[in-house]
């Protein structure tokens, strides 16, 4: 019994960590590869979740729906919707300097949040969308959770392998060069804006997948699930802790930070009664402190960026010992 409970918890833990790993890999394309600061991860996460939910649920009088498409098409819809949003946002904001993009991205996130809350015909507002189908459920007696975990892990694996392949490509080499010295890339005749837009869209598409997976995992979503803490901030801490620019780092960060987050729950649940209600705030405080600690003492993360060796970029790597080094966007 004890063991079964532990196993259930372990499956749950890995499932959530897997979803975060997807988000973290998406952010790695934007921040890690290209140096774009998107503080609105939650927006793309949410758009993915809602899109997949809307196209896969049964008809409901409370929100748009009734398409009852299969799970994979739901994920496809999630990718398309968040990619399209990223395209629109990118067209306007990617010309801006790095810190302005950061400010603009919290604006996007805020607007998406308001939209999801207020457009009830589409999203059922704050009451959210229930009864989102869970793929592969009911096939076995009690293995639903495990099967879904396998689905998640398959997604993580495919995305990770694809990004690793991509990382060796000239495309990412250009992104990295843009991060270190945008003017030089421009001078070399490359269309910097296009590369940045492509990276931004790709990263957001991956975040959309994360959102879709999340919707089918919980089977119920509402705007409050996508608050900036869980939707954006935790993902940032994961990527920075794991190692910005390193796909393995993104995975490792997701597992470790989700572990830390879950671990603090064990700690706060032992606090005296009057503190329990404030426990989640204490945990958030600790994660914030952890981020500051990492930024000050190990900005390159646990697994520092390891760029592929190519003769053309050898020189710029010297200055990039810490991935933070080349990111002066001003």
């Amino acid at each position: 019994m004890e063991l079964a409970g532990l196993l259930t918890y372990f499956i749950f833990f890995l499932t959530v960590a897997g979803i975060y790993a997807v988000l973290s890999l998406g952010l790695n394309v934007q921040w890690g590869f290209t140096g774009q600061i998107n503080i609105g991860v939650a927006a793309f996460f949410a758009i993915g979740a809602y899109s997949s939910a809307i196209v896969t649920t049964e008809a409901s009088p409370f929100h748009l729906g009734g398409f009852e498409l299969p799970f994979l098409l739901g994920i496809l819809a999630a990718m398309f919707a968040s990619g399209f949003l990223a395209f629109l946002v990118g067209l306007v904001t990617l010309k801006l300097r790095g810190d302005y993009l950061a400010i603009a991205s919290i604006g996007i996130a805020e607007i998406i949040r308001l939209f999801l809350k207020n457009e009830g015909w589409l999203t059922n507002g704050v009451r959210g969308i229930p009864a989102i189908p869970k793929p592969l459920s009911g096939l076995t007696e009690s293995g639903d959770a495990l099967l879904f975990l396998l689905v998640i892990l398959a997604f993580v694996f495919v995305i990770y392998m694809a990004l690793e392949r991509l990382y060796q490509s000239p495309w990412v080499r250009v992104l990295r060069a843009i991060r270190v010295n945008e003017d030089a890339v421009q001078a070399a005749g490359k269309n910097v804006l296009r590369f940045r837009l492509e990276a931004f869209v790709l990263g957001s598409v991956i975040m959309g997948v994360g959102g879709g997976l999340y919707a089918h995992f919980t089977t119920f979503i509402s705007p409050s699930a996508f608050d900036p803490m869980f939707g954006t901030f935790l993902v940032w801490v994961m990527l920075i802790a794991g190692g910005s620019g390193n796909n393995k780092g993104a995975l490792l960060g997701a597992v470790i930070i989700w572990g830390v987050w879950s671990g603090t729950e064990i700690f706060t649940s032992r606090l005296p009664e009057m503190w329990v209600t404030r426990a989640s705030a204490i945990r958030i405080f600790l994660v914030g402190a952890l981020l500051e600690f990492i930024l000050i003492f190990r900005p390159q993360g646990l697994l520092p960026e390891k760029p592929p060796k190519t003769p053309g970029t050898a020189r710029s790597e010297k200055s990039g010992v810490s991935p933070a080094a080349g990111r002066a966007d001003t």
Binding site: I37, W236, I240, R278, I284, F285, A325, R327, A328, T330
Partner: peptide, 22 residues
């Protein structure tokens, strides 16, 4: 870089807010 300081201030924002909540 200013970008790292920006990210660190996002962390500080969360710390302040959660301290207020506590």
């Amino acid at each position: 870089t200013p970008i790292i300081m920006l990210i660190s201030s996002v962390g500080a924002a969360l710390m302040l807010r959660s301290a207020i909540q506590v």
